[in-house]
Every structure is written in C-alpha cells, then in structure tokens.
Design a protein around this nucleic acid. Sequence first.
DNA 1: TTGTAGGCGTTATCAC
DNA 2: GTGATAACGCCTACAA
Lengths: 365, 365
Amino acid sequence: MRPPLLDSTNPLPLQSRYASRTVAAMNSGGAGSGGRATIEDVSRAAGVSIKTVSRVLNQERYVSGTTRDKVNAAVASLGFRPSFAARALAGKRSFQIALIYDNPSPYYAQNIQNGVRETCAARGYRMIAQPAHAGSADLINEVANLIDQAQLDGLILTPPFTEHAVLRDMLTARHLAYVTVSPAEVTPVVSSVTIDQRAAAAAMTRYLISLGHCRIGFVSGDPRFETTERRLQGYRDALRDVGIAYDAELVEPGEYDLTSGIRAGFALMQHPNPPTAIFASSDDMAAGVLAAAHSRGVAVPGKLSVAGFDDTDLARVVWPPLTTVRQPVHQFGAVAAELLLALPDKIEQRLLEFELITRESVAAL
Amino acid sequence: MRPPLLDSTNPLPLQSRYASRTVAAMNSGGAGSGGRATIEDVSRAAGVSIKTVSRVLNQERYVSGTTRDKVNAAVASLGFRPSFAARALAGKRSFQIALIYDNPSPYYAQNIQNGVRETCAARGYRMIAQPAHAGSADLINEVANLIDQAQLDGLILTPPFTEHAVLRDMLTARHLAYVTVSPAEVTPVVSSVTIDQRAAAAAMTRYLISLGHCRIGFVSGDPRFETTERRLQGYRDALRDVGIAYDAELVEPGEYDLTSGIRAGFALMQHPNPPTAIFASSDDMAAGVLAAAHSRGVAVPGKLSVAGFDDTDLARVVWPPLTTVRQPVHQFGAVAAELLLALPDKIEQRLLEFELITRESVAAL
DNA sequence: TTGTAGGCGTTATCAC
DNA sequence: GTGATAACGCCTACAA
C-alpha cells in the first residue's frame, strides 16, 4: 500500500470564483461599438452594390481592379468580417469540415488536429474536432447530427473509422466528400493519405536489428485498428528476413495509449529472457514503455532500446545516406485537409517529394 | 553519428490516392433524399405554426403539453435537426464558444479540450478549439476575427492567455463572457477555475520528501506562464519547511513539453551530485524526464522518483487516510465550460465536493 | 463588369 | 397559449 500522495490533514483549498452572471447576462450589457460591419456597410462605404462586395470577397472573376481596390479599402477601414452563419445559410458551403477520430493517444490526436486546422485556416475553413468511440452504437446518428447541424462541407476520417462501412456508406449516400487517413485499403474513389504500414514497421524493426538487437519486443495496438495488424506483420517480416525466429511471447497487446504502454512494458520485462529492444506501435505507448523501464530500473545504458511509431508526420530522407537526416516535412492531417478542400495537382506534386514516413520516437534521443 | 534510421536504399512507397473531385465537386452529386427537414416541415406535420415549433425546441414557457407532444413527435419522425447557421443568424446566440490555449503539452491540451467539449455537447453548444501563440503580435486580431465570424457566445482562456491584459480588455469591451482556467489572480468579476498552485506544488514536494528524498530536482515550466513561478515557490516552501536548503542548480527550466523535459532530465542527471527525485511541472515534461533517465540507465529501481503535475483534473481525497484513493472526479475544462454556460448554483454545490487537485503523474506507477 | 430581387432556416416582435 | 410577419447577413439566380 502506497503512502497517501498528499497530506490529507492539510487539504488544499480549491479556489473557484464566479460571477453570478452567465453568458447571456454578461453579453447583454451592450452592443459594443454599434455592432460589427455588414456587407451593406461596406457597399455603402465603397459606393458599389452589395453583390459587388460579395464578388470581391469571394474572389469571383469579372471585377475591375478599381472596384476591387475600393471594396478592399472599405473592408479594411471598417474591419469587416463576414459572418460564417450567414454565408452558410445563404450559400451552398458552410466552410466547415469535421475531423472524426478515436482518442486513445493525445500525441496522435493533437498532431492530426493541428495539421488539419492549419490547412483549414489557410483556406478560410474551420475544423470541428469530433472525437468518437468506434464501437458506439449511436455513432452514425451522432455524425449525421453533426453533418446536418453544422452543414458540413466534408469530413476527415482517421482509424478506425476509416474501416467503418456503415459510416462510409452513409457519407456516400449523402454525397458528402470525405478523406481517409491511414485507411486499410486505398480505393480509387476516396482520397486518402497513408503509407505502407507494414513496410514502415519492417523498416523500423530493421533499424533496431541494425543496432545489434536480436530479441525485440513488440507492443501492438488496439486490434480494432487495421493498422495494428499490418505493423505487426511488418515486424515479423523484418525478423524473418534476417532469420530471427518469431516469438509470440515478445508481443504484448496495447491500446495505443500511455497506460497500456506501461502495462505492456512491465509484461515484456517480466519475461524470463526479456527483450533488449521494444518497438511500440504508438508514441504514447513508447512513452509508457519508457516509464515502465525506468521504474524497473533497467540498468545498463543502451541495453533496452525503445522505438515508437505514429503515422502523423511525413519524413523525408535526404541523401547521401551517411548524413541521413530525418526531418518531418509535412503532416498527415494537413495533407488530408488539402486533399479534401482542393488542389489535387499541387498535392500530387508535393507528395512526390516524400518517400517515407515514421516519426521520431520518444526514445530517439 | 547515428546510423541511418531507415534503409535509404529501400525507400518506403508513400501511398496517396485521391479522386479528381474536390469538396464542391463531390457534394454536387445530388441532394440526398430531398434535403433535410426544416422547422416548416415540422410545423406542417404537427399542425401548428412555425413559431410554436420554435418554442418547443427552445423550451420556452407557455406551450401546452399536448402541443409539445405533437411537436416532439413530428421532430422525431422527421429526424429534424435545427441548423446552427440559421439559429445564429436569426437569434442572439450562436451556441458556440471557443477554447483559447497555447499548445506546448498534448496531454494538457487534449485533456482540457475533452472536458470543455463534453460540457458543451451536453448543453447543446459547440466548442471551437483555438490554439494560439501567446507572443503573437496578431493575437488580438485573430481572436477578434474568430469572435465576429463565429459570433461566439463566450470564451475559455487557459494560461498564459489568462494574464493577457490586452486580450481580456478587448473581451470586456465587447461585453463578451469568458472564464479563465488557472489564472494568476482570481477576480470577483470573472469566473475562473483554479487551485492554489503553490500549495499543490508544495504538497507534491512533501510527498517526495516523505518517500525519503532530500535532493529533489525541479523542472520548471515556461516563465511566461504565471503558474510556473508559483509552482516553483511551492517547491521551495516544502523544502524550507523541512529544513532542506534550496539549491538553484537542481532547478532546470523547461517549456511544459516533452522535448524540454528530456533536456532538463539530462541536465539534472549530469549534476555532480544528482538529485534522487525529480518533480516536473507538467506531465509531458515528467515523461521527458523518464525518457532521459532511461537513456542514461539510471540504475537502481526507486533511486530516481519522477513526479508530474498538471492542473487539468480535480481529484478527491477519500477518508480515512489509510485507504486514501486519488480519483479524478472532475475536470477543469468541463467545470470552466459549465461556469461559462450556466448554472452557478449547481457548480458551487459540486465544487464543494472537491478539496484538492493534482494529477496522477506518469511516474505514479 | 455591375446591379436587383428573392430566399436560406431560424428567432424576435407583436398581435390575437 | 398561439400565430403572422419582419428581420438576420449573405449568396444564387437573373438581368442590365
């Protein structure tokens, strides 16, 4: 039994103050400086029609340079900012897309989110982050709800939703655009960003072998994710290629999160003949393995190598090999959003620059 | 020079397929099953006026039970979902609030986000997650932009924005409701959720002392966060109370993220007389310290204790002390959102249940 | 290249 | 209790 973490005889005072005014009460104080400017205000200031202002704002063609300048000047001087709500209501687009993700790993979730958000911001879109549970019976309803209420223009699906047939069918039936990140299968009709999970995992395993390890543990991910099995296969591929026998006892299940990484780390180190290296299928689990290793006091420096793997970043290999540098140059979320929003040509061009993915693991110190 | 991480002679094929259709092209395929239901459809189905449907939906008073039932039945059978855009345009509220946060620590960011999002969902609101850079010269403009475009109903500020006077003044001038999480100072006019950072850090330090440590390292956070200094002070308080001399060399700066935790961990362990315990000001940094410790092969189990600290969860102490259990029972983000959206009475009642905050650290195995 | 009319789906106002 | 009617701010026609 551990000692109490904190002295219970001296409880910390929890501070919490709040005014008695809620959102509604606080905001009703006044209209600020007379309310924000509308397109009508701009049109008046610029001496043109509302429609012309709209044209400039939406970068439509057939607007003279003079007019454009006048409008832009008026927009700037009035500090005009178009209302998303009005645009969504009147137009076909809402300028909103959603990112649907399961949430076992904070590193992964934040990383993907940031990439999607940045691309969205650059294109005048907004991202709605929507964590969900893969097994939820209500998932379809929840997503449909979001689509209707927010008038979504499109969605980005990460595993395991990439394999959710019912969800994908629903999106297709609604003619809703979506892009998948790391799907199990690449189909010609749906855009997706991914790598060959199996080959990447094999490459990572080869790296550990190249460090001199021959007993390499593997922390697997949630079996409901298709990527999980592929990475395990890649691990086995690499072992086979160099003639190392596969030992099922060196493979521990995990769930992509920190806690399961800790558990798996302990389990592997309890093995009578423990591994000298551990390859975890996510960065969070790799961090967990490290925590477990530390707590067990794994002694000799370099004795236990820990590697992590997350498919959130693209990394480029720079030649010549002797000075190989692994540098994240792009980001799955960002690429996915670009695929969803536009510009296939540019995307293609950029993707050609990348050969390889994996992410610096926590252990790659 | 490390060996190349991956075999550059055998690059991994990057897979990326996308259809040539963009969002607009894909969505123009058809109108689905004739478009979603509107209030008008519901009113027709229920045999009442549009306004009456609106009344039911908004839970206004003065609606007869019979009418309410009819409307609800129609809503259900038609699968009606109100449009956020239309509600925002016509009404005073947009049902959207934003969470403004700096983003050094994925664990913190995800944790707060999840709490806010859950409360929002329960209340029919939506959260817009908005990471920002505290030092950004354009911050005010960015936030103002968000407020206007999304017609925000309110905001939640996390450190270091809680101390951003210009930002707060702007919000006040606009009569916009906002709540602060872990602000440096609690003021009577702004709702906030926080703990006594100094006392909590002192308690954590006392815990490490109770384990028998007398050389305790401290990994500090970003100095632009007010909480940083307070936690350091708490650490010093605890040392002083038991007569341990403060040694500035055992304090390493960090930035709340994993990388700086790794760096700080190395720095502390290089000390000629290294600490036997390290207290990091964030969970991410604690994970980094663990990684560093592992890589240095800190040998004896239990020799280096590592503690983390994040103020995202509330924990309750359950008596009697001998069976003390630390159990996260609530969440800063969730509480903040509740403060922002409504129900001060309930909040107060619930807060009284909590005495203490800290979060299980990565090391608390 | 520019302007006019109408409507998007909901809430606010004011009658009934 | 309930129901017309006019906004809300913008975009999509269509016309000039």
